[in-house]
Computed example of a mutant assay.
Amino acid sequence: MSPLSAAKPSPSDRSSGPADATPHTLRQVVVVLTGASSGIGRAAALAFAAQGASLVLAARNRETLQSVADDCERAGARALAVPTDVTDPAAMSALAQAAIDHFGQVDMWINNVGVGAVGRFEDTPLASHRRVVEANLLGHMHGAYAIVPHFLARGRGTLVHMISLGGWVATPYAAAYTASKFGIRGFSESLRAELSGHPGIHVCEVFPTFVDSPGMSHGANYSGHRVRPPPPVVDPRRVANALVALATRPRARTYIGAQARPGILMHALAPHLMARALGWVGGAAMRHAAPADRTDGNLFEPSRGCAIDGGFRQKARSADALWLGLGALAGVAVAACLSSNARSTR
């Protein structure tokens, strides 16, 4: 059955939302998911489909997006594919309206789109910096602007923002990405405060560490070197399962990956030291990486691939020792910094 021909739910099916669902089924839940064509998005779509949720899937590439919708329907879910560019606020409003018109309601909206541009700040075209901020930060704001009025009218709903550890810890050679992620975190906290008088509406932030998705391969690269995420990397399916859990148990913040909390703590205690350490490691990794052509990646054109995995987990083991050593060094440095601060206050 085509997603466009899926039967609309009856009025009785529309009466329940995430608060009424059980951990074993989301059959009465309607989820809008952006960035659904590959990586975390595709994994999440399939995870929600396995629980019986009705899905409205958004991405720029119609063909790959439809393939995800078809897979979800084969899993027994209802799925509607709506090609959408999150940088276009009118398109995001149309996405929300399409979901409401087709399924009668939206219970959960997941802003999952994330793009990046790797390279020195001055070597990266300004248009590319702008595009990263437009897709990541403004894309999340466009999604929220489109769906929050619907949540307010219903008195309930769950809005999820995919952020990453980059929302707490700056990433060298990815200035616009870092700026956008810090911005999304600030936006989420502000919006959560505004909606605090509506206990049925939740604003959730998700902070995974580096994920083994095709995102880095699809992204723009102006560094002149082949890049890959530092190990250990997280399975996209683990992030997808965390998103499914938020449908029944919304929480303000979800951290995924072994480095998440230690990284945030080290940044809070010794931000300048952390920045220098990351800059040194990032620069060393660039110098030793294989050469690569400059590319705009998927900033201005949709990605063509639809894989969930990026293939980085198989390549990561040889570099684990470097990152474990860095973690130990940073830990010692932070301890020394705290000891110095304690002596200075005596």
Rank of each mutant, 00 (worst) to 15 (best):
R62E: 15
P83E: 06
L80Y: 07
A59D: 09
G39Q: 00
A81T: 03
G41M: 05
L80N: 02
V82I: 14
A43M: 06
A47C: 00
E63C: 07
A79K: 04
G39P: 04
V68D: 09
Q66H: 14
A53C: 10
A45N: 01
A79G: 00
V68C: 15
V86F: 00
D71G: 14
L80R: 01
T84W: 05
F48I: 06
A58K: 06
R62Q: 14
A36T: 11
A50K: 14
A44P: 01
R78G: 04
L46M: 13
R78C: 14
L46P: 07
L55F: 01
N61P: 08
A77Q: 01
S67V: 12
R60K: 15
I40T: 06
T87A: 15
G41S: 09
A77G: 06
R60V: 13
A58Q: 05
G41C: 02
V82S: 05
D70T: 15
G41L: 02
V56P: 00
Q66F: 03
E63G: 12
T64C: 03
A50W: 05
R62W: 01
T84P: 04
A53W: 00
R42W: 00
A36L: 11
G39N: 08
L80S: 07
A47K: 01
A44D: 05
A59N: 09
A58H: 09
I40V: 15
P83C: 10
T64S: 14
L80Q: 01
A36G: 14
S54G: 05
Q51D: 13
G39Y: 00
A58T: 06
T84S: 08
A81F: 01
L55H: 03
A36N: 12
R74Y: 04
A53N: 10
R42N: 02
V68S: 13
T64F: 02
E73T: 13
G41F: 05
V82Q: 12
N61T: 09
S54Q: 03
A79Q: 03
L57Q: 06
R62D: 15
N61K: 08
I40E: 02
V82L: 07
A59I: 08
A58D: 11
S38I: 04
A69N: 10
A44V: 05
R78K: 12
L55W: 02
V86A: 00
S67K: 14
A69Q: 10
A79L: 08
G52H: 09
A79M: 07
L57C: 07
G76A: 11
A53R: 09
G52Q: 09
Q66V: 10
L46Y: 08
A81K: 06
D71Y: 01
A49C: 09
I40D: 06
R42V: 00
R60F: 12
R74W: 02
A47V: 07
T64A: 09
I40C: 07
V86I: 10
V86K: 02
S37L: 04
Q66R: 13
V68Y: 03
E63A: 15
E73F: 04
R60I: 13
R60P: 11
A45E: 05
T87S: 14
S37Y: 06
N61W: 03
A44Y: 02
D71N: 11
A58C: 13
G52P: 07
A36D: 04
A69W: 10
S38C: 15
A50E: 15
R60C: 12
R62V: 14
